[in-house]
Amino acid sequence: SEEEEEEWRRAKERGEEIIILGILWKPNDEEAERRIKEALRRV
């Protein structure tokens, strides 16, 4: 969703871990980033 995407962007800017759509994303975690982008597209 729009607000999840916004939340994720803010976490990326701050360089902090975030759990979004049930996926743990850490800074520079390209695999998780790809999965999150896929999940955001499906929503």
Rank of each mutant, 00 (worst) to 15 (best):
R35V: 05
K37G: 05
D29E: 02
E16G: 06
L40E: 01
G22D: 04
D29A: 03
I20K: 01
V43W: 14
L21N: 03
E13Q: 12
E2H: 15
R9I: 10
E33V: 05
W25S: 00
N28H: 11
R34M: 12
R41K: 11
K37M: 13
R10N: 07
N28V: 02
R10W: 08
R41W: 07
E6Q: 07
I18F: 12
I20Q: 01
E3K: 14
E33G: 05
I23N: 01
W8A: 01
G22F: 15
I18D: 01
I20V: 09
G15F: 06
I20E: 00
L21Q: 09
E38S: 07
G22M: 13
I23L: 05
E31S: 07
L40G: 00
E16D: 10
R34N: 11
R14H: 07
E6R: 06
P27V: 03
R14C: 15
R41S: 10
K12L: 09
E5G: 04
I18C: 14
R10C: 13
V43S: 13
E4T: 13
A32W: 02
A39L: 12
I18K: 07
R34H: 07
E5D: 10
E33T: 11
R10E: 04
K12W: 14
R10I: 08
E30Y: 12
K26M: 07
A11D: 01
W8T: 01
W8N: 00
E2K: 13
E7H: 12
K37L: 15
I20N: 00
K12G: 02
W25E: 00
E31W: 05
S1M: 15
G22E: 02
R34L: 12
R42A: 12
E2V: 14
N28M: 08
D29Y: 03
P27W: 05
E7I: 14
E13F: 08
R10F: 06
V43L: 15
E38M: 05
E33L: 07
E30V: 11
E3F: 14
P27H: 01
A11I: 15
L21G: 03
E3R: 14
P27L: 02
K12R: 11
E7C: 15
R34Q: 12
R42I: 11
L24H: 08
E5A: 08
V43I: 14
W25P: 00
K12C: 11
G22V: 12
E17Q: 11
E6C: 14
R10M: 09
K12D: 02
R14M: 09
L21S: 03
R10G: 06
E3N: 14
I20P: 00
E31P: 01
R35E: 07
E4L: 15
G22Y: 11
R34A: 13
E33D: 11
E38G: 05
A11E: 02
K12Y: 13
I18S: 03
E31M: 05
I19E: 09
G15Y: 05
E4M: 15
R14P: 02
K37H: 11
L24N: 04
R42W: 07
K26I: 11
E13R: 08
R9H: 09
E38Y: 01
W8D: 01
I23P: 01
K26V: 11
G22A: 04
E6W: 12
S1V: 15
R41Q: 10
S1N: 13
K26R: 14
I36E: 00
E17P: 15
R42P: 04
L21E: 03
E2Y: 15
W8P: 02
R34V: 09
A32D: 01
E2C: 15
S1E: 13
L24S: 07
V43R: 15
I19K: 05
I23T: 03
W25D: 00
I20R: 02
R14K: 12
E16M: 10
E13W: 08
K26Y: 05
S1A: 14
W25F: 04
L40W: 05
L24K: 12
L24M: 08
I23F: 03
R35A: 13
L40H: 03
L40R: 03
G15V: 04
S1Y: 15
R14Y: 07
R42E: 08
R14F: 07
L24D: 00
L21I: 05
I36N: 00
E30S: 09
I19N: 06
P27C: 12
R35K: 12
V43P: 09
G22H: 02
I18H: 03
E13H: 07
S1R: 13
R41T: 08
I18M: 04
A39N: 02
R9K: 10
R41A: 11
E5R: 05
R35M: 13
E31A: 08
E4D: 13
R14A: 11
K26G: 05
D29W: 06
I19V: 13
V43A: 14
L21W: 03
D29L: 02
G15P: 02
K37S: 09
I20H: 01
A32N: 02
E30C: 13
R9M: 10
W8Q: 01
I36V: 11
N28T: 04
R42G: 09
I19A: 04
I23D: 00
E16K: 10
A32H: 01
G15D: 03
D29P: 02
W25L: 01
E17F: 10
E7Y: 13
G22I: 13
I19T: 12
L40D: 00
W8R: 01
E17T: 13
A11M: 10
V43E: 12
I36K: 01
E2L: 15
A39D: 00
E38Q: 10
K26E: 03
E2S: 15
I36T: 02
A11H: 06
K26A: 09
I20A: 01
L40Y: 02
G15C: 14
E31G: 06
E5M: 12
E3T: 14
E4F: 15
E38I: 09
E5I: 10
I23E: 02
E31T: 08
E13M: 13
K12Q: 09
R41E: 09
R42T: 09
D29R: 03
R9N: 09
E17R: 07
I20G: 00
E4V: 15
K26D: 03
E33M: 07
I20M: 03
E13S: 12
L40N: 00
E7W: 15
L40A: 02
P27N: 03
K26L: 06
L21C: 14
R42K: 12
R10V: 07
A39P: 00
R34S: 11
E3I: 14
L21R: 12
G22S: 03
R41D: 08
E38V: 05
E2F: 15
L24P: 04
W25G: 00
W25K: 00
L40S: 00
A39R: 09
W8I: 05
E31K: 04
E5S: 07
G22T: 04
A11G: 03
S1F: 15
V43D: 07
I20L: 04
E6G: 05
I19L: 12
A11T: 03
I18A: 06
N28W: 11
A32T: 06
P27Q: 03
W8C: 07
K26P: 03
E3W: 15
E3P: 13
E31R: 04
E31L: 07
L24F: 06
E38L: 04
L21D: 02
E3G: 14
K37Q: 11
E33K: 02
E33H: 04
R42Y: 08
E17K: 08
E6A: 11
E4Q: 13
E6M: 09
I19M: 11
I23A: 01
E4W: 15
R14T: 08
L21H: 09
E6Y: 12
L24Q: 06
K37W: 13
N28D: 13
I18P: 00
A32E: 03
R34T: 10
R9A: 09
E4K: 10
G15E: 05
P27Y: 03
G22K: 00
R41H: 09
P27A: 02
W8Y: 07
R34F: 10
R9P: 01
R9G: 04
E16I: 13
E2D: 13
P27E: 04
D29H: 04
I19G: 02
E17L: 09
E38A: 10
L40Q: 02
R34K: 11
S1T: 14
K37E: 14
R41P: 01
E7D: 11
E4R: 11
W8G: 00
E3H: 14
A39S: 03
E2A: 13
R14Q: 09
R9D: 04
R35P: 00
E16A: 07
I19F: 12
R42Q: 12
L24E: 03
E30K: 10
E38K: 04
A11L: 12
N28I: 01
I23Y: 00
P27M: 03
E7A: 15
E30R: 09
R14L: 11
W8F: 14
R42M: 11
E2P: 13
L24T: 08
E16Q: 11
E2N: 13
E17M: 11
E6N: 09
R14G: 05
L21A: 09
D29I: 01
K37T: 14
E33A: 07
E2T: 15
A39Y: 06
E30A: 11
E38R: 05
E3L: 13
E6F: 10
E38W: 02
